[in-house]
């Protein structure tokens, strides 16, 4: 099953501002909660999110325990050339997800 959903326009004019919305499936366990027996539930969160546009980084975010499960990250970038945007989420317990989306700039 898919672990991340990315939505953005497939085509854009040069110089146009692209709105990109991403959803990642993740419990974002804070590390501060306890079970009914009082045992601390280990932290399990996404630590970083990076978006690259044809290899160049255009957006980066650090995530912290206060962010809810299944984080929705929406941001913008300027359409410069046709190519691929790559999205990477990385976190605790070796969590790593990559998604990519193509864009045609006219």
């Amino acid at each position: 099953m898919s672990q991340a959903i990315v939505s953005m326009p497939k085509q854009a004019k040069r110089g146009e501002v692209l709105e990109i919305k991403t959803l990642a499936q993740h419990p974002m366990e804070t590390g501060y909660r306890r079970t009914q027996e009082g045992v601390v539930i280990a932290r399990n969160i996404i630590r970083t999110f990076v978006c690259t546009y044809n290899g160049a980084e255009v957006f980066r975010m650090e995530l912290h325990p206060a962010i809810a499960a299944n984080p929705l990250i929406a941001f913008t970038t300027v359409a410069t050339e046709s190519g691929t945007l790559e999205f990477r989420w990385a976190g605790d317990n070796g969590y790593a997800v990559t998604e990519s989306a193509g864009i045609t700039v006219v």
Binding site: M1, I5, N70, L72
Partner: peptide, 11 residues
Amino acid sequence: DATNPAMFWVL
């Protein structure tokens, strides 16, 4: 649908 987290369950 791009922001509704329930879509993970739908998929």
